[in-house]
Simulated assay, not measured.
Amino acid sequence: MGISNNITAVLNFVALLCSIPIIAAGIWLANKQDNACIHLFRWPVVLLGFLILLVSLAGFVGAYWYKETLLAFYLCCMAILIGLLLIVLVFAFVVTRQDGSYYVPGRGYKEYRLDGYSTWLRDHVVDSKSWRKIRACLADSDVCPKLTQQYITADQFFAAHISPLQASI
């Protein structure tokens, strides 16, 4: 077996081992029924873990025993996964590029307007189904109680340097 096959086999074995915690995290998320925020991430994480497991297994077996058909399958699947990852990254960058913020005199934080965000993001936040999910996530978090404990007066709140999420609540 050549050096390149050894390197491919080792890297795919490491990827195979890394897929196990991803699958376990997805199963753990699937068992947490009480949190609305993780609802969207449950099964995609499990699916991603299984895809990584299958592709890395094909790459490992193909490289270790020099099975050309498995190596070809591995290369095609890896190219598709990398292409999908690039598409998702470009989409996320385009959608979140604008932040809708502007400075307000006398405030320690920026104000945010929905008009400053991308059209796709604006349409999905304004949608009543999406907003119910977002509101449920915010209600489940401990952001509001922490703010009331940390800032007692309105002047303290307005002078504080807080995150956009904290300012919107």
Rank of each mutant, 00 (worst) to 15 (best):
N5S: 10
I7P: 03
T8C: 02
A9P: 00
V10D: 01
N12K: 05
A15W: 07
C18I: 14
I22G: 00
A25V: 06
A25Q: 04
L29M: 11
Q33S: 15
Q33I: 08
I38K: 00
L40Y: 14
F41Q: 04
F41D: 02
V45S: 02
V46C: 03
L48K: 01
F50K: 02
I52K: 02
I52V: 06
L54N: 00
L54Q: 00
A58S: 08
G59Q: 01
V61L: 04
Y64M: 07
L71F: 01
A72K: 15
L81D: 08
L81K: 08
I82P: 13
L86D: 12
I87T: 14
L89F: 15
A92T: 09
V94D: 14
V95Q: 09
T96A: 09
T96G: 07
R97V: 15
V104G: 13
P105Y: 10
G106H: 10
R107I: 10
Y109E: 05
E111D: 09
S118Y: 05
T119M: 10
D123N: 14
S130I: 03
S130L: 06
I134R: 03
C137N: 06
V143F: 10
T153S: 12
A160L: 05
H161Y: 06
H161K: 12
I162V: 04
L165T: 08
S168M: 10
I169H: 09
